[in-house]
Design a protein around this nucleic acid. Structure first.
Lengths: 153, 153
DNA sequence: TTTAAACATGCATGTAATATGCATCTAAAA
DNA sequence: TTTTAGATGCATATTACATGCATGTTTAAA
């Protein structure tokens, strides 16, 4: 059970942008920071833009910015929109959902509800909640690579 | 976001067995019912047995049975044991979890908690809850194939 | 004791959803 | 008019699963 990298990268991009609200950030800058496939990143950025999470501009001094306040974008919202589907089991998909046990089995609705528990929990957290309030990129950039790991949990 | 077929099939097998507590059920019988890859089914059955959900016996008149009462096996328990991993994003895996934002990002713990919400919801439902109390296989077998879809939700 | 019916298991292969790469286009600013 | 940025379509790679195949092992009945 996992999210696609598309959703994963989306969250990373938005978190990076939350720490850089005052300037245009380029794909290359994010790529430098995370060392993520630049091509994939480009597509993620585009989808984020289409979904209204960020504003992009081309050309010199172009780049992207958060379209809204980090405190107004929830993790749940991002996951719901950036993850392609949530068909946990076969019977949750329209076409293939022809399990012979369906008429007597309520697994589908139980899983639907459990998924909603998952997502609404994420609705309770915003991008602002996801970064340490005292944190800054300046601090991060001083750390030798590999120091990682969130000391908060 | 989806579960593996391994977990999916596991639930189906257990649901089938919940409706057939009084006899030994063979892989072929389950295969006939669900039309699932027999080879994969074999492996699922084995894992279910190793994990103590079912008892199997070889030889003539062999087969499998639920090891416990359907009311005592929760969906959550099955999913937790039969799904290979729950690394929703890269930073949740031990080896690859070297995201540069980790020191200031609490996404990992937020997702961990959301996942726990999902699983504990499933802990609240048992195999007995997952089948309609009035249902029987006899009823199901009378239905023409394709009638499907749970009318409960 | 032999045969048939079941599950067990290792190895090989297929598959399909993502992910990535590459080339090129479009837009904006200096 | 050149450079810098994102946009986009098509091709290819990757990889986790899923499936297939062959064979082994156990058990019970004939």
């Amino acid at each position: 059970m996992q999210l696609t990298r598309h959703a994963d990268y989306s969250l990373r991009v938005l978190i990076y942008l939350s720490l850089n609200r005052d300037k245009n950030v380029t794909i290359d800058e994010i790529n430098d920071f995370y060392r993520i496939s630049r091509n994939h990143l480009t597509k993620v950025v585009h989808t984020l833009s289409v979904n209204g999470f960020i504003n992009t501009s081309r050309g010199k001094h172009g780049g992207m910015r958060l379209a809204r306040d980090p405190g107004g974008i929830t993790i749940g919202e991002v996951v719901r929109q950036m993850e392609p589907h949530f068909k946990l089991v076969e019977c949750q998909s329209e076409e293939l959902g022809d399990c012979r046990a369906a008429p007597i089995c309520s697994l589908k609705s139980v899983l639907d509800n459990a998924l909603e528990q998952f997502l609404s929990y994420l609705d309770g957290y915003t991008l602002a909640d996801a970064v340490r309030p005292d944190a800054s990129l300046a601090y991060l950039n001083k750390l030798p690579i590999g120091t990682s790991r969130n000391s908060r949990d």
